[in-house]
């Protein structure tokens, strides 16, 4: 039982795409005011739990890596630009990220596996992802006060660069498939 909870906790840390999106969102939330930050974190946790509960009932997500990287790229560009964003947009981005991460955090579906184990995995994932995001957003919030938030924007540029290159690689791999069909 503990193994499933623990695997769930490690899940966001073991998938680079998930970690990259969490990092980008954390940096972005840290650039917002306290109200936006708190509301977004709360909504993120709720949406993540909802997505994780729904995941066993839904078919596997298609193009998950592509969507994750695209989201990481968009979030990191917003971090670099560092414009004050409307609350609605920040909440929308938090919910989208949470739903995407939740739906992509599928526990194994082995024959005869107890449903409780699936939900233990989901609990581990939601706890771990929420803690990581809270930690990153808090760090970003305080780093924004140092050197006019330069460090945060530079890390944003690194995320944008990484995600852009892997997006190009995914597109290049899918091009022959697209032209064949």
């Amino acid at each position: 039982m503990i193994s499933f909870f623990w695997q769930g906790c490690l899940h966001p840390l073991s998938v680079p795409g998930h970690l990259l999106v969490l990092l980008a969102l954390g940096l972005l939330l840290g650039q917002q005011d306290k109200f936006s930050l708190r509301s977004s974190l709360g909504l993120f946790v709720l949406s993540l739990v909802l997505a994780l509960v729904l995941t066993p009932l839904l078919p596997p997500l298609q193009y998950n890596e592509f969507i994750l990287l695209l989201l990481a790229f968009i979030l990191s560009l917003l971090v670099i630009i560092k414009l004050p964003l409307p609350l609605g947009l920040v909440l929308c981005l938090s919910v989208s990220t949470a739903l995407l991460l939740g739906l992509d955090s599928r526990a194994p579906r082995l024959p005869g596996l107890a449903v409780s184990k699936l939900y233990l995995h989901a609990l581990g994932t939601s706890l771990s992802a929420s803690l990581i995001l809270t930690l990153l957003a808090s760090l970003s919030f305080y780093l924004n006060k140092l050197l006019a938030g330069i460090a945060v924007r530079v890390i944003g540029a690194w995320i944008a660069a990484s995600s852009l290159m892997v997006l190009a690689l995914l597109i290049q791999h899918s091009l022959p498939l697209l032209t064949a069909s």
Partner: peptide, 23 residues
């Protein structure tokens, strides 16, 4: 410049990387 240059470099480097990936 102290933060613009280290921010421009990885972003444009990624564009160069895209050219390399796409051949």
């Amino acid at each position: 410049a102290i933060w613009v240059l280290p921010m421009v470099f990885p972003l444009v480097m990624a564009l160069g990387g895209v050219l390399g990936i796409l051949g």
